[in-house]
Amino acid sequence: MADSMITVFERPHSLKPVPSHFCSGCHHGTVHRLVAEALDQLELQQQTIGIASVGCSVLLYEYFDIDVVEAPHGRAPAVATGVKRVHPDSIVFTYQGDGDLAAIGTAEIIHAANRGEHLTVIFVNNTTYGMTGGQMAPTSLGGQVTTTTPYGRDLETDGNPIRMAELLALLDGTHFSARVSVDAPRRVAQAGKVIHKAFEMQKNRAGFAFVEVLAACPTNWGLSALDANERISQEMMPCFPLGTFKDLSGAQG
């Protein structure tokens, strides 16, 4: 920009200047940007190692200009543990979907949290398996029609939407757990602050920090980008309330 202008908002440096493969209106892009902004603001890009999971966000390394290890489906917290134990001074984060973290990878996330691994976990809850074509996720809402719950999720037989942020907050090893959303400008700003904090805590070696982000998958919800965005406050928030469920960052000093 010309010298006569002040930059108010720009694409973060930690994101590569390439278009993403995400669908139009997919909130993965927003969450990617918020993570990159946190890395920029905290000047962590050079020392950060991202752990990609299996889901629509598997191509993390195509978009983040950082070192990345790709983990098997659900195993990102275990891979992150291995990396972080070797490089305790680096910043290690996992980026996982709800199928990845809250179904196949439940054991790995609970035990990484329980050990109090110094990790930042970004959990993108879009109530579905985006990558494989919109099947039921453990976070799918009661009655939600997915490609494997064609008659709607039956809470009697298909289980209940799982609230990971609350669940993980119960563990002594968890130092921070919050749920945010990116469906409105002020909530995006708030989500950015929380994600920033979750990285800052790791920088200060303050333990396991977990951020759940409510996100839209317009494609598999069968909604326009705007209607999908709207669904987050209308349908998801009543089941997945926003808030901070645990914060020991103060206690950690």
């Binding site: 195993r75 891979v79 543990t81 291995g82 990396v83 070797v86």
Partner: peptide, 26 residues
């Protein structure tokens, strides 16, 4: 060094994957 008793063999091998990716003998 680090010894870690994992929650399962699945987790253990993925910790090995991470440590190896991080460049050490594991």
């Amino acid at each position: 060094g680090t010894f870690l008793q994992a929650e399962s063999e699945v987790a253990a091998i993925n910790m090995v994957l991470g440590a190896s990716a991080a460049g050490v003998r594991v």
